[in-house]
């Protein structure tokens, strides 16, 4: 299974940096997310996660370091969190870490609401 490595950029839209590693199970998304085709972009990540989680009960660590994402992106991120929740319920070891800036009360609120909707534990850590 191949890794996903996307280098983020901010020339027109804001493409996040993505590193999903199939050997270590560490999946990281960072930067800012505001895309032309939001659902297409995230579908690739969701497909990868579906493949990874269908290969037994390998550990998965999801590190979210997004400092900005628009509302369309948040809908896709919720889908990822739900997928992780299902994987966790199937008995796999899943850890979700969310990094945010201490001043960013809006991000903290957003992550709390995403955690509620996906019914999954998210550990909030400061940068």
């Amino acid at each position: 299974m191949e890794n996903i490595e996307i280098k983020g950029e901010k020339t027109e839209f804001f493409i996040p940096t993505v590193n999903f590693n199939a050997e270590t199970g560490v999946c990281e998304i960072a930067g800012e997310s505001y895309l032309e085709e939001t659902f297409e972009f995230y579908q690739k990540l969701i497909d990868w996660l579906n493949q990874y989680t269908s290969q037994g009960k390998k550990t998965l660590i999801f590190n979210c370091k997004l400092t900005y994402f628009n509302t369309a992106s948040s809908k896709a991120i919720l889908e990822i969190l739900r997928l992780l929740k299902n994987y966790q319920e199937s008995g796999a070891d899943v850890k979700i870490n969310w990094f945010y800036h201490e001043w960013d009360d809006d991000m903290k609120m957003e992550v709390e609401d995403l955690g509620l909707d996906a019914d999954v534990k998210i550990d909030l850590l400061t940068f």
């Binding site: 032309e36 085709e37 939001t38 659902f39 509302t71 369309a72 948040s74 809908k75 919720l78 809006d106 609120m109 609401d113 509620l116 909707d117």
Partner: peptide, 27 residues
């Protein structure tokens, strides 16, 4: 309301999540 709207299925032919105005008021 934002959570309720976000939980609705994706709308065919729409790029956004239809929650922009709610998000603006929250921010």
């Amino acid at each position: 309301l934002k959570r309720d709207l976000r939980n609705l299925p994706r709308r065919e032919g729409h790029k956004g999540a239809n929650i922009g105005l709610v998000d603006i008021a929250i921010k």
